[in-house]
Amino acid sequence: MKRVPMRDGYGKALLELCAQPDNKIMVLDADVAKSTRTVWIRDQYPEHFMDMGISEQDMVGTAAGLALGGMIPFCSTYAVFLAGRAWDQIRTTVCYNNLGVKLGGAHAGISVGPDGATHQALEDVALTRVLPHMTVIVPCDAEETRKATLAMAKRPGPCYVRFGREAVPVVTDENTEFEIGKAREVRDGSDVTVIANGAMVYEAVMAAEKLAGENISVRVLDMHTVKPLDTEAVVRAARETGAIVTAEEHQLAGGLGSAVAECLATLFPTPMEMVAVNDTFGQSGAPQELMDHYGLNAENIAAKIRQAMERKR
């Protein structure tokens, strides 16, 4: 299977946006343009690019001003320094003013690997999800990241998209449907539903294929939009399959699993298990080594599926 880093999809989308005539796009980076792929904009559309230096708070504030002045600004840096370092700017200046600032959180999740815990954003979805007006997207591959980025440019108000550093399997193509706020059914099933996002979508499919051999029918939803959550798809899955497993490359508290639990607890209480990093920081290591260590893989998803099915009885 072809493997491509999701950030390539982000960079490609920005190139497409900058190529449109009379566009209002401005791409801001905080001295990591090569990592986030916004260097492609710097090289091809320098009039649409600004390197703000290592000052994330100023970058987000400047983007807010650009939005107030009628532009469509994209801010990119590592997810920890965007959603974390500049959180107050995102809250009070971007979201309180309901400004169309588009945030690209790169190198998200544990899979950034050897850089260690300081650079592994495991809290960014929680941090952005609690903010009024904010849209939060966690795409599953490079192609979906491209579509998400294009969709963000059209969507009014603040948006956050997070993506990883590593090359991950490309599981969608240009014809795969993508709509913000609408879950994508990757695979139908009747015994249990895995609701996953990011690189965990592929792992969920692997788990489902494995369990098919044991006569367990697993539905997989790509819940790329954490906010606004597709509650209809969540409730339908709960009603039709009776058990839910969530899977994400993020802290358990406050992420996709929490969003799904909030939905089901109020609308359709259902046995549920969660695959996520559980209240611990990461560490240095090879990406796959870390994903395995923290249980962010098909094997652990399969184990949680069995646990969830036990609880159905």
Binding site: T62, A63, G65, G69, P73, T93
Partner: peptide, 10 residues
């Protein structure tokens, strides 16, 4: 001032 700069650039 960051917001001000952004508007000024726009």
């Amino acid at each position: 001032l960051s917001i001000t700069n952004g508007i000024a650039i726009a």
